[in-house]
Design a protein around this nucleic acid. Structure first.
Lengths: 208, 208
DNA sequence: GGATTCATTGGCCAGGTGGCCAATAGCTTT
DNA sequence: AAAGCTATTGGCCACCTGGCCAATGAATCC
């Protein structure tokens, strides 16, 4: 071939997925997997050693997740090409990924040829999304985003805290806690705090 | 080799995972992938046509999930060998899987050789779990299980319903609804309905 | 047939909840 | 400097919540 293979680094906490991906990509002469990592530290480490053309990075990982890994990598290598791989397709993850500097975002439900195309586009520096992702983003986008404080409060709601509890923990009045909760309810279109937590999980604002 | 390859059917809604797995398994002479499916219907259909030795079945799928697929398959083929593949590792899924007749359960975080071993054991009819799964089950088992009615109520709590709402919907008194909620709180060790929903998500009782 | 579990219902009460009103101070963007 | 957003706080009120008490019929298990 005239062009050398695109050198890839894979990061995914699922060994089966990693091995499968590596096998699949290596059988395609356009690609060459030069490294595999299963967490943030290993990714940064291998990236320095291998200098891959493109990093395939899983969004969901225990410990330091893919988004944060991306952020750290980008601080070190501002022009790295990073294609995010996701199984969840939660809109929040997608938005955060691009915010953190992702070059592309592909769902694991994508067909292999969609993945190949995405890698090529990503290598060329194009912002790419798999069609399935684009659809999902279009059909029901974010609504109003929560402020950092509200996300913090949502995390406390999740733990079953009452307004007075939250107030104590944040060093504010229960009135204020109430105001935050009220804002959350409006933005997530929930009727009460319990539904708000549900929507939080559904939208990817809350994890696990 | 003296023994013929074990014939495998793969079911996973993630095309990337399917293709990767197929590639990986086919390079091992012990295995031969004879079919791939991405949902329940395709699985049942292909199973009838291929009669694989072992079915590798993903737990989490949109629409009809892996557990239900397993249930339906088992009704038709009581002696099928089915190895469940999971990314979530939620204890509920594991319990339900074995209840529905799974032969084995392996995490996608397992190393490829663990997967190979699991397939072999599964083919031999042994109940197998990947070590990582066993650990997870041991360290923090189910607590008290919810009754069907309680699970139903939990699903309504998730939608932000009040006790009177639930009562109306189920045709019971709000006193009774309250009693169910109280039982849920005790069993999930939650202080209120909001935390109960969180625990529901964490334990795999609630999906999405 | 007796034990167990499940689903059901009742009363009482202190405390938390969410809706509605309006206001101020700090920060960033323009 | 004006506009806009964020975080903060206040009062009032009908309603919902969870804890504690106890009881009954039905189905299932041993």
């Amino acid at each position: 071939m005239k062009t050398p293979a695109i050198r890839l680094l894979l990061t995914d906490d699922h060994a089966v997925m990693r091995a499968g991906l590596a096998n699949m990509l290596n059988t395609n002469p356009k690609f060459q997997v030069v490294g595999q990592a299963d967490d943030c530290a290993a990714t940064l480490d291998l990236y320095r050693k291998c200098h891959p053309d493109v990093l395939l990075l899983d969004v969901a990982m225990p410990g330091v997740d893919g988004i944060e890994t991306l952020r750290q990598l980008r601080a070190e290598h501002p022009d790295a090409r990073v294609l995010m791989l996701s199984s969840s397709d939660a809109e929040e993850d997608i938005i955060h990924a691009f915010h953190a500097g992702a070059t592309g975002y592909v769902s694991k439900s994508a067909r292999p040829d969609e993945l190949y195309a995405a890698i090529l586009d990503c290598h060329a520096g194009k912002q790419v999304m798999s069609p399935s992702i684009e659809r999902r983003l279009a059909e029901q986008s974010a609504g109003k985003p929560l402020t950092p404080r509200e996300i913090e409060v949502l995390g406390l709601l999740r733990q079953g805290m009452t307004n007075p509890d939250i107030a104590r923990l944040l060093g504010i009045t229960s009135r204020t806690a109430k105001a935050h909760v009220a804002a959350i309810l409006v933005k997530l279109e929930a009727t009460d705090r319990t539904e708000a937590v549900t929507r939080g999980f559904e939208k990817g604002l809350l994890k696990l």
